[in-house]
């Protein structure tokens, strides 16, 4: 069973399942947007950036970009967010989070090179 849907332009026939995958980043993006609008600019900005990056990932992979680039990019955004929060007084927890994500980023990168 093929459940494809056309979104107007015949050159942009996105499968519904791909649209659902692209929208997976929307709920967290909306929470981040609310944070941004309600004054928590930095938290909101990084949240929106992560959601946008994930959404771009799906669209760009659809157009042929290598999908393995996007997870490390997402980790890099999260590490930057944690480090900035730690510098602003987030304490050890944020440093620990950044370190953990950095280790995960290294493992992912090494894993991708080996694959």
């Amino acid at each position: 069973m093929n459940i494809s849907a056309s979104f107007g332009d015949p050159g942009l026939n996105l499968d519904i399942s791909i649209a659902v995958l692209a929208l997976a980043s929307a709920p967290l993006g909306l929470v981040a947007l609310h944070d941004f609008m309600s004054g928590e600019r930095e938290r909101g900005l990084f949240g929106v950036a992560s959601a946008a990056w994930s959404l771009c990932g799906v669209v760009l992979v659809y157009y042929g970009a290598p999908g393995l680039l996007f997870f490390p990019g997402l980790l890099a955004i999260l590490i930057t967010a944690s480090l900035r929060r730690a510098r602003r007084g987030g304490g050890r927890l944020q440093y620990a989070k950044a370190t953990l994500l950095a280790v995960l980023l290294c493992l992912t990168t090494v894993g991708m090179v080996l694959m």
Partner: peptide
């Protein structure tokens, strides 16, 4: 709730029939 929605989206994606 946002994380639950994300999980649901991923489940729907992986369960969708292939061509």
């Amino acid at each position: 709730s946002a994380y639950a929605c994300v999980m649901l989206c991923y489940c729907a994606f992986f369960a969708a029939p292939v061509s």
